[in-house]
Simulated scan of single mutants.
Amino acid sequence: MDWSAWHGGYDDPGSWQARRLRAVQERLREVLDGAPPGGVRVVSLCAGDGRDLLGVLAGHSRRGDVRARLVELDARNAGAARRRAVETGLGAQVEVVTGDAALPVHYAGMVPADVVLVCGVFGNITDADVERTVRACRALCRTGGTVIWTRHREVPDLVPRIGGWFAEAGFEQLWLSAPGVGYGVGVHRFTGAPDELRPEQRMFDFVGYPALRPDLWPEG
């Protein structure tokens, strides 16, 4: 799978990718709008070219308060995120790490964070790894912090179970996209005490949607 070329779908404003991106960005703006005064730490797993965060932060009134770390394995996407950060004047406060987002060591020093973005992850890993990653968010998110996540809604729809796993892990649901919009976006606030970050414990294996759903992607 060419994950750099995959981002071309965002160029069509009517695509599910573009519509999902707008939903994620709207929720992120709301979270930043409601953040208390002071610094805001953000981490993004499998960040792609960074548009989830950078598309919001560039024009937001709280941009000066945000420090972020984006972790992305694809070197082309990571390079595009760095360029985007520099072009929007955010290069000094947005760090892009080219590395495996499943490894907690990449978030050391930035977590527990105020905002955790898990977008484009849950549709590319096994159900067991989705549950494990939800639990891992307890170490990534501070008390009162927010996780914004995405997942496709193909049958069998895992979104309701993901919501249940977040509830079991000590998160309360703030927002969930409607079932019929063609994508799933959820927003959950952490109400518990953060777990200790365990750098050696892998959160998930990124399998990829084509391999997980060959019935829907036969050429994969």
Rank of each mutant, 00 (worst) to 15 (best):
E30V: 07
V31I: 12
A35G: 14
A35N: 12
P36A: 12
P36E: 08
P37M: 07
G39P: 12
R41G: 14
R41N: 12
V42T: 09
V43K: 00
V43S: 00
C46F: 03
C46I: 00
C46N: 14
A47T: 07
A47L: 08
G48F: 09
G50S: 05
R51L: 08
L53W: 02
L54D: 01
G55A: 11
V56P: 04
V56A: 09
L57E: 03
L57Y: 02
A58H: 09
G59P: 07
H60W: 05
S61F: 10
R63T: 03
D65C: 00
V66I: 07
R67F: 06
R67H: 08
E72W: 04
L73K: 11
D74F: 00
R76Q: 02
N77Q: 11
N77F: 01
A78D: 01
A78L: 03
A80H: 06
A81M: 03
A81T: 01
A81N: 03
R83G: 09
V86D: 13
E87V: 09
G89W: 11
A92H: 09
V94K: 02
E95Y: 05
V96F: 13
T98G: 09
D100I: 04
D100L: 04
A101L: 15
P104T: 12
V105H: 14
V105G: 11
V105E: 15
H106P: 08
H106S: 13
Y107N: 09
M110Y: 14
M110L: 11
V111S: 14
P112S: 13
D114P: 10
V115C: 08
V116L: 06
L117T: 12
L117Y: 09
V118G: 14
V118L: 12
C119K: 00
G120S: 15
G120A: 13
V121H: 05
V121E: 05
F122V: 05
G123M: 08
N124G: 15
I125M: 08
I125P: 10
D127S: 07
D129I: 09
R132E: 13
A136V: 09
A136Q: 15
A136F: 07
A136E: 13
A139C: 02
L140D: 01
L140Q: 00
L140T: 00
C141N: 03
V147D: 08
R153H: 04
E154L: 06
V155I: 04
P156G: 08
P156W: 09
P156T: 14
D157L: 05
V159N: 14
